[in-house]
Design a protein around this nucleic acid. Structure first.
Lengths: 229, 229
DNA sequence: ACAAAAGTGTTGAACGTACACCCATGC
DNA sequence: GCATGGGTGTACGTTCAACACTTTTGT
């Protein structure tokens, strides 16, 4: 198409910061690059946006290709467009972040040829390109958003105990919370469905299990309610 | 450069939602298109990202070209990449929003050939492309952010009265606020510098003037303080 | 019986909300 | 003197923060 401009134009990619939570804490998925630049280095999974797909679709496709997961929380983070962020040529990347729980979804670290691995957030290798900046912004977004939007549930299995919920908040926010106050607040929001079930195979008193009630949440939002903490 | 990919690639533009506040309320700046598609229609100011400039730089440049302003608040909003959002070809646009006050800066509606005009937010023409969607998201972002970040000051002149400050919040948030509570809260934050000056040329008792103290704000943030309303 | 985590209430402080009148100034 | 907006305080209810012990269950 000649209508627009015939000048050189930037390439556009998507990159995904994939957060996963398990018993060890919060992790992110990195892939090992098999080509220059940064060959052998670790980077966020990502790739070029194709002409026939939207940005969201491109991010979902990459996520699927790299991890095998689908139907997970995925949201655009920010677009990075510094001129020299890629040493080869001009590349603008639209960054996304995803939240998955590592228990429910059996996340395949990689379905394509490249090595991939989960890294603890406090034990990361050096990242390629400006991916450390992207990761940092993703962490800030997650910390900021988890407090006023019910996205934290995406990091937990479908059924969870209040202890697990609290632990998730403590890990994401990076500080400890008071148990009694947390339970009071969490239950008072009215979006936790008591499943009348308890944990199994634990070597101590079993905790009640809850589920996040999406419909109730939507209803409350419609009535002008504000989720917080 | 042949390193990356030789396939067709999307074009990348920036578009700016420019909010301006004056006595009539909150307005945005639109330009009238002088080419197909949507020739003669109103659209957000914007243009192609050049190879030698970052996204922020591209947005600043467009802003300058369209309005003559510089040194204003400008922040990335979201990137829109639906496949058919531009009927000609694949165009991904990185949207920004800017906040200016229409008193301090004498905003030139346009320095290039195209017509441009300020529109009241509740009296807008139909917009080209998906610009109504972009505008809507910008409004939501502004409403959400003004409450926990001191960006509202960007819509006011350097020196302002508490009444002006309250009016700005009322306009942005779309609801009225209690005068005494607002003043108490605003002053208690400790980021308003009392200039020991009063309004001039008003036909009633003159109000004290204040200035937003950026340094004090930075200091408080460093000490772990949270701006809110 | 002991280890481990589940579960539960109260109090004081801080904050948000609702509300009405007098004051200063310009015309 | 009147119209316009400037400026101020209090009381109540709600929410947040701090804090420790008993119960249940598995080993």
């Amino acid at each position: 198409m000649a209508f627009v401009y015939e000048y050189a134009r930037p390439s556009v990619t998507v990159d995904c910061v994939i957060f996963g939570l398990d018993d060890d804490g919060l992790k992110i998925l990195l892939i090992q690059r098999d080509a220059e630049p940064f060959e052998g280095g670790w980077a966020l999974p990502g790739g070029f946006v194709e002409m026939g797909e939207s940005l969201d679709q491109a991010a979902m496709r990459e996520l699927q290709e790299e991890t095998g997961v689908h139907e997970v929380f995925l949201e655009q983070l920010y677009t990075f467009g510094e001129v020299n962020r890629d040493p080869r040529t001009r590349v603008i990347t639209v960054a996304y972040y995803a939240l998955v729980n590592l228990k429910d979804h059996k996340v395949e670290a990689a379905t394509d040829a490249r090595a991939a691995a989960w890294f603890e957030l406090d034990d990361l290798p050096t990242l390629a390109f400006d991916h450390d900046k992207i990761l940092q912004m993703a962490q800030e977004r997650l910390q900021g958003k988890v407090r006023y939007q019910p996205i934290g549930f995406e990091l937990l299995p479908e059924k969870f105990s209040l202890r697990q919920l609290q632990r998730m908040y403590e890990i994401v926010l990076g500080r400890s919370l008071d148990k009694r106050n947390f339970r009071k607040k969490a239950l008072s929001l009215g979006v936790l469905e008591d499943l009348n079930e308890v944990e199994r195979d634990v070597s101590h008193r079993a905790a009640r299990l809850y589920r996040f009630d999406r419909e109730k949440y939507q209803q409350l939002v419609k009535d002008g309610f504000n989720f917080e903490l």
